[in-house]
Amino acid sequence: MSNVNVAIRVPALLGEGPSWDAENGRLLWVDIEGFKVHAYDPATGLDEAFDVGQHVGAVVPYQGDEVMVALRSGFHAFHLRTGRLQLIEDPEQGLDGNRFNDGKCDAHGRFWAGTMSMRNESGTGALYCLEEGQPVRTWVKGVSTSNGLGWSPDRTAMYYIDTPTRCIDRFDFDLTSGTLSNRTTLIKVPEALGFPDGMTVDAEGMLWVAHWGGGCVTRWNPDTGELLQRIDVPADQVTSCCFGGENLEDLYITTARTGIREERLQETPDAGSVFVVRPGVKGQETHAYDKRNKG
Rank of each mutant, 00 (worst) to 15 (best):
P234W: 01
G178I: 01
G244Q: 01
M118V: 10
V60A: 04
G64H: 05
D174T: 07
G45P: 15
F78P: 03
E48T: 15
L175H: 06
I168R: 02
A107G: 13
L85M: 14
G280R: 14
G225D: 07
R278Q: 14
D197A: 08
I231R: 04
F171W: 13
S19P: 12
L87H: 13
K282L: 08
V10F: 11
P91I: 02
W208L: 13
D169W: 05
C167M: 12
G214D: 03
E204C: 15
A77K: 13
Y128H: 09
K36A: 12
A288T: 07
R119I: 05
N120L: 12
D90S: 13
G53M: 06
K104G: 04
D172W: 08
E121A: 11
L71M: 09
G213M: 05
A288G: 11
T185Y: 12
E263H: 12
S73Q: 14
A12T: 08
G97H: 11
R166I: 06
E246R: 14
T258H: 10
S144L: 08
N221T: 08
I260R: 04
G83R: 13
S73M: 07
G125E: 02
G215N: 09
R278V: 07
Q229N: 15
H38P: 07
Y289I: 03
L127D: 03
T156G: 15
R72P: 04
D96P: 10
K188L: 15
S2E: 15
Y160P: 07
V209Y: 01
L28I: 06
